[in-house]
């Protein structure tokens, strides 16, 4: 396999049991992503974007074929190894933010660092840095219910980025945001991608997101329909 690849998928198929038969959500996927990409899985609803993202995120396993993420084969990881991969190397951003409602902004962002057992002083610095990236240093003590949707998603980005993961997986990150907020968080992510060389993989059908992608992988009915690089890509305007 290609050692520069951060994600390598071979002949991947995923099917779900449906009563007596089964439903094939992904069939025969072959893909490879390198470090630093800013790439999206694009496709209509039900095309398998989330399913593929979940497998890459080691939250699910392939039915057949292989998915290598950061040189680890997702299908053969134990629950503990998979948790460790997510804890150390992966960041997640969800459509509905998935913040811990009873924790403050600071505590939400601090969470991944607690799991990594980083000491308090270092933690504080890293959390403040991450909140700086997303421009939320004035909201450290707020709790998610007091924030707007855009602010919530920025907290979620800070939480995903705070440990400087190798790979960030973002599933419909703008689906609940208005245009202005969508552009704001996308610009933030582009900036982090360029400054920290973090690899981003999106699942989306939002044109605003698609406009920022450098590589577009189109999924249709669980298959890769098209895979193209944007030729003359402009960074943040």
């Amino acid at each position: 396999m290609d050692n520069n690849a951060i994600i390598q998928i071979r002949e991947l198929t995923k099917s779900f049991p449906m009563g007596k038969s089964k439903f094939t959500a992904l069939s025969n996927i072959n893909l490879s992503l390198e470090k630093g990409e800013f790439t999206g899985l694009i496709g209509p609803s039900g095309s398998g974007k989330t399913t593929l993202l979940n497998i890459v995120g080691s939250l699910d396993t392939p039915t057949s074929g292989e998915a290598w993420v950061l040189n680890q084969s997702i299908g053969s990881l134990s629950a503990k190894e998979a948790a460790r991969l997510r804890k150390e190397k992966l960041g997640f951003i969800f459509q509905s933010y998935n913040l811990l409602a009873v924790h403050t902004v600071f505590e939400n962002v601090e969470f991944p660092l607690l799991l990594l057992k980083i000491d308090a002083a270092e933690r504080k610095k890293m959390v403040m840095d991450a909140l700086e990236w997303v421009g939320l240093t004035d909201k450290v003590k707020s709790k998610p219910p007091q924030l707007s949707g855009g602010e919530c998603q920025r907290v979620a980005i800070a939480r995903a980025m705070v440990k400087r993961p190798s790979l960030v997986l973002a599933d419909e990150p703008t689906a609940n945001l208005d245009a202005a907020n969508s552009h704001h968080i996308l610009q933030t992510m582009v900036k982090l991608n360029e400054e920290l060389k973090t690899t981003f993989l999106f699942a989306t059908h939002d044109d605003k997101v698609i406009g920022y992608l450098r590589r577009k992988i189109y999924l249709l009915d669980g298959k890769v329909a098209n895979d193209e690089w944007v030729k003359d890509y402009h960074t943040v305007k």
């Binding site: 939250l59 629950a79 948790a83 460790r84 969800f94 509905s96 998935n98 991944p112 799991l115 939480r159």
Partner: peptide
């Protein structure tokens, strides 16, 4: 349960 899913996504095992 969404919170539980989030813990797991952030690197918790189910046992944790």
């Amino acid at each position: 349960q969404k919170e539980i899913g989030t813990y797991i996504a952030l690197g918790y095992t189910r046992r944790e």
